[in-house]
């Protein structure tokens, strides 16, 4: 068997447009951007279609580009042995919402929780979206670029010298709004 075929963005956009018409927003060299609306149906089509056969969700993660948030999907096919990079662009930083793909791939369950935990991306339709690594009520979304200037976000450094910090207060400063 040949080595994995890594689609480049434009090639993948063509393929996707063929399989699921009207789902592609734009494409770059690296990835094919999908429309947020109907994402789950698009993904389901991509999974079941014989041409794409993306039955394996290799990776799902968020990314922050200052002006927008992105969700990255690396999808793989075992039979055809090809890999495609899909992205979803989220302009609204305050309340980024994207349809969950858990019904399509159960493996997205924990990865979406992680993206929610660290980027604050809401996955609509996720069965149990909770902060998987941090605790509920952790201020801010740590992997965002503007984490340090978020309202209620943490500031690096301790108030006092380490070890002398009082136990009853957390040894961190918060930024007042």
């Amino acid at each position: 068997m040949m080595a994995t075929h890594w689609f480049d963005g434009h090639e993948l956009a063509d393929l996707t447009e063929r399989v699921a018409p009207g789902s592609v927003e734009r494409s770059t060299d690296a990835a094919c951007y999908l429309k947020v609306e109907g994402l789950r149906e698009t993904m389901d089509t991509l999974r079941t279609s014989a041409e794409t056969d993306f039955i394996f969700l290799s990776n799902l993660c968020g990314a922050d580009y200052w002006d927008r948030l992105e969700v990255v999907y690396h999808l793989h096919s075992f039979e055809k042995n090809h890999l495609g990079t899909y992205k979803v662009e989220l302009i609204d930083r305050d309340k980024p919402v994207v349809p969950s793909v858990v019904p399509v791939w159960h493996g997205a369950w924990m990865q979406e929780c992680e993206a929610y935990d660290l980027f604050g991306i809401e996955f609509e339709g996720h069965p149990t979206l909770y902060r998987i690594l941090l605790w509920e009520g952790f201020p801010g979304w740590p992997l965002r670029k503007d984490f340090l200037s978020m309202p209620g976000g943490l500031q690096p450094g301790l108030n006092e010298f380490a070890g002398t910090a009082r136990r009853d207060e957390p040894p961190v400063r918060t930024v007042d709004e």
Partner: peptide
């Protein structure tokens, strides 16, 4: 369900899926 759960490595192979990145990619 192993594939759907994105399992990999020995877990995936134990379910009978022939998949190994060293060979595939």
């Amino acid at each position: 369900s192993a594939i759907s759960s994105s399992l990999s490595g020995p877990m995936l192979r134990a379910s009978g899926v022939a998949w190994d990145l060293r060979r595939a990619d």
